[in-house]
Design a binder for these strands. Structure first.
Lengths: 232, 232
DNA sequence: GTCATCATGTAAGCCGTTACATGATTGC
DNA sequence: GCAATCATGTAACGGCTTACATGATGAC
């Protein structure tokens, strides 16, 4: 039993969220933060490694040393003369990614205590993180681990905050005396916030449908978000 | 002559930018940062006052004590330039609210050295601040103090950065394996970036027109940005 | 044999926050 | 008289960055 109290900032939460699915080593955690979540883009090692140590000291994760395992021969590294970097990339990044022998690395695995803490913090923050852009994004990225009710609270809280923000922004854009650049900036910002709100409204709506379907049961994977594409 | 080297972070730049137009006291600077610029929303006094002291020590601003003057004394701080605007601003600052005597306050005025430093930093940063959202917003808000050329560089640099960001975001949104929430988030982010780019393209276009009009002359107030409204 | 990439860390510092401390003036 | 607002500051701390330090491996 560890009673170390941990502040649990955003980075810690994000790390536990990633480890919730599978064990990873530090370098790879950084890659996923960037490529998969898009949050904490290029977090520095000066933040990452101390965070991992902290989590370990707090007993929320445990580590095992993954010594260089060249013997498994998972990837024909030198053999391919095609020089297809894409193949390596895809392998490394995606599903078929076997741990190629590199330097010995520390593999982090979440503990039961870590899972508890993660869930608690995710729910606690959902109520209060509405005014923090990254905090909200982080919570939404892990929203599948929230109960339908908590999820709805998160979305509605965020919406309320954005409505306030929009009011301030339209006031600014509408007020006189600003030079063209500042005005254009303010106008663009208010339009962006409007779209954010519309987007949230869609999420909220489909969330409500999910709630009505199965009353008071907390299924983990309810309903796909609005699927409107804009890319080829 | 002061030779104190100052790092000149965003807040310092914003303060000098506001003081560029008229002298102000600390509390009012904070209000304008929030209400007029929308940047550094609710900057804390724990940041603001030390910043002002720093600027004063560096000789970029000077202070005078504005002792409590209970008599109506309308706007004692109409600076030399931008007079007509200053009056309007001060009047509208509080609808019925003449700047009545409060506690004695320190009024900050920018020095010649401060103006030089401001301009230099604004131009220097214009080349490099493209990857910093707030840094860019700040520069654009003061873009009227930039030469048309520097302004164009600022906008184009930002555009290039956003194009990179968009590539990463569409890759994320398009890639498989994400849960609905994360995917929706990624998609929404990429759409927002697309709009940012479109907006920048309009700004760049009208900036180019301004350049063509008066070749190689650097007029301070060139061309109003695209004026398309979305609010009542 | 040297460079790029993978991999893990520490130290110093910047930029901003909250909490604390003080005080004047206006309005109820 | 008391609360709200205006007004100026200091102290402590948090989160993240850059720069520094080390080392293995594979590619050229």
């Amino acid at each position: 039993m560890r009673y170390i109290i941990i502040t649990m900032n955003g980075l810690d939460l994000a790390i536990l969220g990633l480890l919730h699915e599978q064990e990873l080593h530090g370098y790879e955690i950084r890659r996923r933060l960037r490529d998969d979540l898009g949050l904490f883009a290029n977090i520095s090692f000066g933040s990452l490694y101390p965070a991992l140590s902290r989590l370990e000291r707090a007993g929320l994760v445990v580590t095992t040393i993954d010594e260089g395992r060249a013997g498994r021969a998972p990837i024909p590294l030198t053999g391919s003369l095609g020089g297809e970097r894409a193949v390596l990339r895809a392998r490394r990044a995606g599903v078929g990614r076997a741990p190629s022998s590199r330097r010995s690395r520390k593999v982090y695995r979440i503990t039961e205590s870590g899972r508890d803490q993660f869930t608690r913090m995710l729910e606690d923050g959902a109520a209060a993180s509405t005014d923090d852009d990254r905090g909200f994004g982080l919570r939404l990225a892990f929203a599948r681990h929230l109960s339908p009710r908590a999820r709805l609270r998160l979305l509605e809280g965020r919406r309320a905050h954005l409505a306030e923000r929009l009011a301030a922004e339209t006031a600014r854009a509408g007020g006189g005396g600003l030079d063209p650049y500042t005005r254009s900036l303010a106008q663009h910002a208010s339009e962006a916030t409007e779209r954010d709100i519309t987007w949230l409204d869609h999420l909220i709506e489909s969330e409500r449908l999910g709630l009505d379907d199965s009353t008071s049961s907390h299924v983990p994977a309810p309903d796909p978000a609005t699927t409107k594409g804009s890319n080829p």
